[in-house]
Design a protein around this nucleic acid. Structure first.
Lengths: 353, 353
DNA sequence: TTGAAAGCGCTAACAA
DNA sequence: TTGTTAGCGCTTTCAA
């Protein structure tokens, strides 16, 4: 790196253009350049171009009292669904000159707090939180007292001290789950089980609720889920729990499994293979999320697709509206629709038997 | 959001503690708190705690002339390899109180420029660039004249006007490719082909070079690659190009394919299926990257794993060293080693025939 | 339409 | 060990 002469400031631009810094500031600002003489504005612009001037966002933010940044807290960047969410956010923030600051919690409550601190310290103008655990309700409610907070994907389900001041953009887990489970029921399956993700996360808690409700509403349907919960929503946990299920004698074993996400479903697929069984002949499996490549598995996974990009966009819109002070104008809670995706990992029970 | 009283400043803390702001500043700073009387420091700390004071990073950065942020430019957040890179970076920046600002280019040269502008405007202290195209050499060289730039994963291969001032952390594509191709050759394959990613990206250009060199060095080995290049490294392009290959009459058709990444390999798998053929019986396929779930495909994909987390860590270390002004002290170019991963998508030619 | 002046919140000489 | 002072680069009243 060559030692550069020095980064030019507005003062340099003003001097070169022969005007006061205030004038230079106005000339360069979109909102105020109309207050400036055409010719003067030209002079300033070309001076800025000549020097390679670039506004110092730090100084501008300090002076304006707004940083022009938006905190985005996600649990897991490796979750492809999250990437679409982030991109949706970015699509909305770009035209507004807002910079998303992305931090990751890895589903660790301590990291949620420390990353949020980091964002507050950076003076983000709002936060989109897609990483909440149910137990974070109080913390988040308090946070929402300090700056606008949009809860994305994961919420608190009316429980806890959420004072109604939170904005939310959710996806209907109950609906998605019902579509998946009713698909299995329509196929003739009656002995079902779910592989549950951590119940500290609203999405998984709702999927469990949706599963139970769907079973209860269907005469003759039974829930055979083991009393186990996945510690994480990953392949190895799916495998572990499915193995328990497969240990049940054939006659009373479930014929179909609803896994709370695709990785758990892939684990179930593995357990099935370990047991010398196959899908969908011996067992039907449904996942959730429609992760990349699950359509290329053997068999291609039946699953539920989330409107992740749209969740991101709507979250960003709510955040922007809140920053602009339009409290109350926008709806407080948006519920978007998931889409059931039928593929090869499910088949009718009659056929299977 | 309740209207909060006002965010407390250092002045508020100082007043409550009954000291000057400068003293409060020192007391709260790690580097200078030793200059402050134990009792005074206590007073300041508890005043800060009482008010819920949080340093304003904007003001601090402006004053210090360093933002405490590190720009991270990636091509594609959906690439799982990139997530590990980002996490590696984060592991190194966290203890240093540096905040990574992550932006995505989607492999669009215009977006590379606009996102970098965004970072410069935010006054990042350095940039880690994992999204370069070969044609960006000049632009990046110029950028490196303005602030420390670390090139990760993708470089410029000595071509172009890179004045040697750039830091680089690469992964040895030549070596990884050679391992993959020699694996195929040892299995008895002689008619090979590659499915090339966009040659404007150094990784793919090097994989192609590695492929050609490995073939050339092996007596009797032939390259049957079609004169086609994938426009993107995705499944549909892999499928398209593999279909061309499979249109060749059986006797002269390649018996093994080296795909420049896993998605291209998955596309080849699809094309094979489309043609009513199977892998590895009719064709061996190797990918690159070891993406999630490729070990669960049918067949599990033989591939090459990148040390992505380590690339991230090393990149961050170089960036931090450069920020701290340790130019020249650290090596300028690090080359890390990939790891060949043998799975089920490759088998010996004899067996196959 | 432009300039003067103040100040966002903080830190770092320098002085006491 | 603490206070004084100045100023990082910018925007925004207020006056002219």
């Amino acid at each position: 790196m060559a030692v550069s002469p020095r980064v030019p400031t507005l003062k340099d631009v003003a001097e070169l253009a022969g005007v006061h810094v205030a004038t230079a500031s106005r000339a360069l600002s979109n909102a105020q350049s109309h207050l400036v003489n055409e010719a003067t504005r030209e002079k300033v612009s070309s001076a800025a171009a000549e020097l390679g001037y670039r506004t110092n966002a730090l100084a501008r933010s300090l002076r304006r009292g707004a940083s022009g940044t938006l905190g985005v807290v996600v649990a897991d960047l490796a979750n492809p669904f999250i990437v679409n969410l982030v991109r949706g956010i970015e699509q909305e923030t770009r035209p507004k000159d807002l910079l998303p600051l992305i931090v990751e919690t890895r589903d660790d409550p301590a990291r949620l707090r420390s990353t949020v601190q980091q964002l507050l310290y950076s003076r983000v103008d709002a936060i989109i939180l897609a990483a909440a655990h149910l137990s974070d309700a109080e913390y988040v409610a308090d946070l929402a007292g300090q700056l606008p907070v949009v809860l994305a994907v994961r919420g608190f389900d009316e429980q806890g001290p959420t004072g109604g001041s939170l904005l939310e953009v959710m996806q209907d887990d109950l609906l998605g789950t019902r579509a998946a489970v009713e698909h299995l029921l329509h196929l003739g399956h009656r002995r079902l089980a779910e592989i549950r993700g951590p119940q500290t996360i609203s999405s998984f808690a709702n999927r469990s609720r949706g599963f139970q409700e769907a079973i209860a509403a269907w005469p003759g349907a039974e829930d055979l889920s083991p009393g186990l919960y996945a510690a994480q929503g990953d392949v190895s946990e799916g495998r572990r729990i499915a193995a328990e299920l497969l240990a049940i004698p054939h006659d009373s074993r479930p014929t179909a499994i609803f896994a709370h996400n695709d990785l758990l479903a892939v684990g179930a697929l593995e357990a099935l293979r370990d047991a010398g069984l196959s899908c969908p002949e011996d067992l039907s499996i449904v996942g959730y999320n429609d992760a990349p490549l699950v359509d290329h598995l053997d068999p291609p996974l039946t699953t539920v697709r989330l409107p992740s990009n749209e969740i991101g966009r709507q979250s960003a819109r709510l955040a922007i509206a809140a920053i602009d002070g339009q409290t109350g104008a926008a709806p407080t809670r948006l519920m978007l629709l998931p889409e059931f995706v039928q593929r090869g990992s499910t088949r009718s029970f009659a056929e299977a038997a």
